[in-house]
Every structure is written in structure tokens, then in C-alpha cells.
Amino acid sequence: MMRHLISAADLTRDEAVLILDTAEEMARVSDRPIKKLPALRGRTVCNLFFEDSTRTRISFEAAEKRLSADVINFAAKGSSVSKGESLKDTAQTLEAMGVDAVVIRHGASGAPYRLANSGWIDAPVINAGDGTHQHPTQALLDAFTMRRRLIGPDAGIGQDLSGKRVTVVGDILHSRVARSNVDLLHTLGAEVTLVAPPTLLPVGMDSWPCEVSYDLDAVLPKSDAVMMLRVQRERMNAAFFPTEREYSRRYGLDGDRMAKMPEHAIVMHPGPMVRGMEITAEVADSPRCTVVEQVANGVHTRMAVLYLLLGGNEPAVTHARTEEGK
């Protein structure tokens, strides 16, 4: 297993499948009355958040606590990130405090990479989202959700996503979720199609391992999973699209469009959703929409990542059984 988790592109197929399998074990533990594992007892994990994200922070915190880690939450937002000194200073402070792992969220692309590679700190670094670059645990929880839904919790063990067709719709340009998903889904053998207005696709993405379409309706019937990305309303002020209504008409997912998807296909969203913009309430609240499951799966997946990065190479199941036997 790697030392840090900075980018979904750094994971091999086998590493990714091991994380998903481990997450499945974690999910089973979560169904038991006693959810806690002793795996990270005595280890300290710091959640270093330079950018507000209660959802992601709580998800990591839950994962850390279920693994019995000691948790430090460090919200650095507001402490002048304009001059980046604070990242280095904070890192060195944490190092001095003997932190065993750092989960970092940062508004600047590359900040976790810098943290892991600048000699500022020795501890493993887990990227919890950096700028418009990467959000690898989100991609892992998405892949986990797809595998569970499209293959099955038990049948999925040891499997990748070969042959599954995944469509990602929305603001690809500004999305770390899209980048991470393209990388990981490709590694796992899925076929990815990105759908967006051309203004919201980055220049220079020709070499990405995916297809691109401007036509959502054409892609929907060929999708096993459709992932809707949040589109910020402010983007229209920068002329990325003319109006909210036009965006919704062309790229939003409503009931009629959902009906064009194959019966088994699921609708995903990393949250928070902008209902009425990229997704209608009808779709968001339908049983095909996995948003709530994704939240639960986020905890399992992050437990798996923390466990594998800090705990060792063997499947967590041995620990789980030990705990059970006590």
C-alpha cells in the first residue's frame, strides 16, 4: 500500500479493489451493535481543514472514531491562507505534536501534494479534496457505491467495475470529483463519459481516459450509473452558461430524462445537491438515487483508507473477527 493518498490516479487496480473490499468489511462491522474496531487505538489523526466542508469532515471523523483513533480537528479557515505560510507552519506544529496521519482539505490544488512532499511533515497525508484537483476518497466511495448497487455487496468482493458505463454530468472544469472519478473508474475498468457544456470542460483534456459528449439524452440509455455534479449558480455570471433555466433544460436530470436510463441504472450525486438546477426533487428523492447511501459508504470507505494506510496490508476482517471474539 502507498504511503499517502493524494490522487486517485496513484492507485493501482489491485490497491483500489483492496480498498473497496476492506470498505465492505467495514460496512459489515457497521451493521453490528458494536461498531468500533480497535485498529487505530493510540494513533492520532488530524483533520486539517483549510476549507469549510462539514460533510467531509464529519465523515472522516466518524471513520477515525470507529477505528478508535484519537481525533484532532483543526479548522484553519480564516487564518490567512492568502499567504501560504500557514500550511507549512501548521504542518510543522502537527508534526511536533506527534500526529500519525493528516487528513487535509485545502482550497489550493496541490496543497496535499506539497504537504506530503516538501519535507514539512513525516506522517501519511490523505487528501480530502484540494482545489479543483482531486478528491480520491470521494471517488472511492462512489466506486464502492456502484459496485454494491450494480454487482452486489457479496458478489462484488474482489471485483472491479469492468464494463460498467458511468456518465458524469456537470461542471467538469471546476470539479475535483470528476477528475478523481475519471482516474479511478478507468483504473477499475469502467467506461466513463463526461457530459457538460463545452465551457465547463477543461482545455487540454483530450488525453483523459474517457469519452466526452454535449448531449445528455443520447448518453442516458447507455448508462449504468449517472453522476450529477453540483453546478454553482455563480458560474453563469462568468458566462459559462446563459441562465439557470437553460442549464437545467440541457444538462439537468428530471423524471423524464431518468426514464430514459436502463431500469437497473442508478443516479448519484456527491452532494450537496442544488435541487432545481442539476437535479429535480423527483429524481433526488427517487429510490434510484444513491445520495444517502453515498454518505454512509463514505464512512466505510474512509475507514478502509485509514486502516490500510496506517494499519497494515491484511484485510481488516481479521481485526473485526478478533474484536467479535472478545
Binding site: 496541490g110 484537483h133 477543461p202 487540454g204
Partner: peptide, 16 residues
């Protein structure tokens, strides 16, 4: 803008 707009900026998520 943070770097040349092209293949690398698309991947790194830095403003082009």
C-alpha cells in the same frame, strides 16, 4: 491563471 493552459493544467486542476 496559475500555469499554462493545456494538458497539465487540466490534470492538475490549476487555473489556465
Amino acid at each position: 491563471a496559475q500555469m499554462n493552459e493545456g494538458v497539465v493544467s487540466a490534470e492538475l486542476g490549476l487555473g489556465g
